[in-house]
């Protein structure tokens, strides 16, 4: 593993009872790059995400996040909310998890909870309406507005998130994750259910996030047009193990990847598996 990795996953394993969802997986995500994690359904991609973002405690293995200033954080030692709060890892969900009864703007305000809690003096300064709180709140609204503009939802800022069309909800969830000002953004199938035009604008958004904010992105995706277009590095998983890794071009031509996705004759598959491990 060469290069400047923001995230290094080393020998990660996750077992659920007798089922091994992720087996001895090692990969790295480079800083300010887009890393894609692909693989057929049930390959264990979301499990890896859940380990990285603290929703699961891995059975074994380490995950190290290195910030720009060189500060290293071991993700497997932090639990749930601290991963977002301290390690600055934000995520979206495969099946969108917005706050449906709150407006788009409110969703983005909730994302800035920790910064705003500090600014409101743990609520007490906010309760008396201190000027420092007012300016912090205005700043938070401005940040939210900026992100709503970036994802093209500023006109629908005051609508309930649950009322937005599907594609808008996807983009809003990304905007919400970005409002936590993350170092690493983990996107779980951001293009699922989007039409070709929406996927194209999603690719554009992700590239602009990488360029503008310098946020490293780790994404799970099935939409190969998105993966091939924007990824700098692709990691392919199947049955909980890494079967290939490389640039989109390298991965696309890898016989093992083709076998995993398209299926092969039984003998051929065995040959591929044996040559791989």
């Amino acid at each position: 593993m060469s290069g400047d990795h923001i995230l290094s996953v080393d020998r990660l394993s996750m077992r659920f009872g007798g089922i091994v969802a992720v087996n001895d997986l090692s990969f790295g995500a480079e800083r300010r790059k887009i890393t894609a994690l692909i693989g057929p359904n049930g390959a264990g991609k979301t499990t890896v995400f859940n380990c990285i973002t603290g929703f699961y405690k891995p059975t074994s293995g380490t995950m190290q996040l290195t910030h720009d200033d060189g500060r290293a954080i071991r993700l497997e030692r932090l639990n749930d909310f601290r991963i977002s709060k301290q390690a600055k890892v934000a995520r979206t969900f495969q099946n969108i998890r917005l706050f449906p009864g709150m407006t788009a703007l409110e969703n983005l305000m909730v994302a800035q909870h920790n910064a705003l809690m500090r600014a409101s003096g743990l609520t007490f300064l906010g309760l008396i309406g201190a000027p420092s709180w007012r300016s912090a709140e205005q700043h938070a609204i401005d940040l939210a507005r900026t992100w709503l503009e970036r994802v093209g939802l500023v006109d629908r800022a005051d609508e309930a998130a649950g009322n937005l069309p599907y594609g808008d909800q996807r983009r809003l969830e990304i905007a919400r994750a970005m409002c936590t000002e993350p170092a690493l953004l983990c996107l779980d199938e951001p293009a699922a259910g989007l039409n070709a035009r929406e996927s194209a604008s999603l690719s554009e958004l992700l590239l602009s996030i990488r360029a503008g904010q310098g946020t490293s992105i780790l994404l799970i995706e099935h939409d190969m047009s998105v993966v091939m277009e924007i990824s700098d590095h692709v990691v392919v998983m199947d049955y909980g193990v890494k079967i290939a890794e490389g640039t989109p071009q390298q991965v696309r031509d890898d016989p093992k990847v083709i076998a995993a996705y398209l299926g092969t004759d039984e003998e051929e598959a065995i040959a591929v598996m044996e040559s791989g491990t």
């Binding site: 977002s84 706050f99 409110e106 920790n114 936590t180």
Partner: peptide, 24 residues
């Protein structure tokens, strides 16, 4: 205030709250 919004967010979706770094 952020605490009140966090309460309502908790009512809406606790998992999302944790993903956003809110101490539930």
């Amino acid at each position: 205030l952020p605490i009140g919004r966090a309460w309502e967010a908790l009512r809406e979706d606790e998992v999302a709250c944790r993903a956003l770094g809110i101490n539930t």
